[in-house]
């Protein structure tokens, strides 16, 4: 299983400077990492995107939604690679950090091959951006799997997990979608 998350560093909330924000999101060890880093805004959203990407796998795996980011504990192995623990589960993360965005893909299996893509659009209305993202992913799947684009569609489960269908049959390939501000990204395994 996989999960992804993108944060537009320009449009991301600067709310983390609010009192109590950090305590609601980060463990003390993570907060120490943020305060000691050169680019604090970037580090906040790097750790956030790691948690969010791993959370998406967790929801897929256990079918339980919750909102408690401190329950997801991050460890950075290198600048790009990390681990996120939720209770007794551990997920592997790979992140890309640029001046504009932070993007993380989380995997259950470290060696799993993941096809992933990030693209920039104008900051649009949610439904338009969401539609563009889905079309991009379906185009990519159509090419990789050699399936006619017209028979492919994306539906969301009651938990909000997106799945790909060939006509009415579910394709047994996990996908993950994300967007924030100007950026959208998909991951497909």
């Amino acid at each position: 299983m996989i999960g992804n998350d993108i944060v537009d560093l320009k449009y991301s909330s600067t709310g983390w400077v609010r009192p109590r924000f950090l305590d609601k999101v980060f463990t003390l060890k993570e907060q120490a990492l943020i305060f000691s880093s050169e680019h604090q805004h970037q580090t906040v959203w790097l750790l956030w995107s790691m948690k969010e990407a791993a959370y998406k796998i967790h929801v897929r795996q256990f079918g339980e939604r919750f909102f408690n980011p401190t329950r997801l504990v991050c460890d950075l192995i290198s600048k790009e690679k990390g681990l996120v623990r939720i209770d007794d589960n551990c997920y592997f993360t790979e992140s890309t950090v640029t001046e504009d965005y932070v993007y993380t893909v989380a995997k259950q299996d470290q060696n799993q091959e993941v096809c992933t893509s990030i693209f920039e659009t104008k900051k649009e209305e949610y439904t338009i951006q969401s539609n563009v993202l889905k079309q991009q992913l379906l185009k990519s799947i159509s090419q990789i799997e050699k399936i006619d684009r017209d028979v492919l569609s994306i539906k969301k489960t009651d938990l909000g997990i997106p799945e790909v269908f060939v006509n009415s049959v579910k394709l047994p390939k996990p996908i993950s979608l994300t967007h924030c501000g100007r950026f959208s990204g998909f991951a497909y395994a």
Binding site: V7, G15, R20, F21, K24, F67, Y126, G160, C180
Partner: peptide
């Protein structure tokens, strides 16, 4: 909040702080 109102999860922290 997330599935219906499409609130970005980072903003959900802001919602909680505003509620407080």
């Amino acid at each position: 909040f997330i599935n219906d109102l499409k609130i970005n999860s980072a903003n959900l922290v802001d919602v909680i702080l505003d509620v407080e």
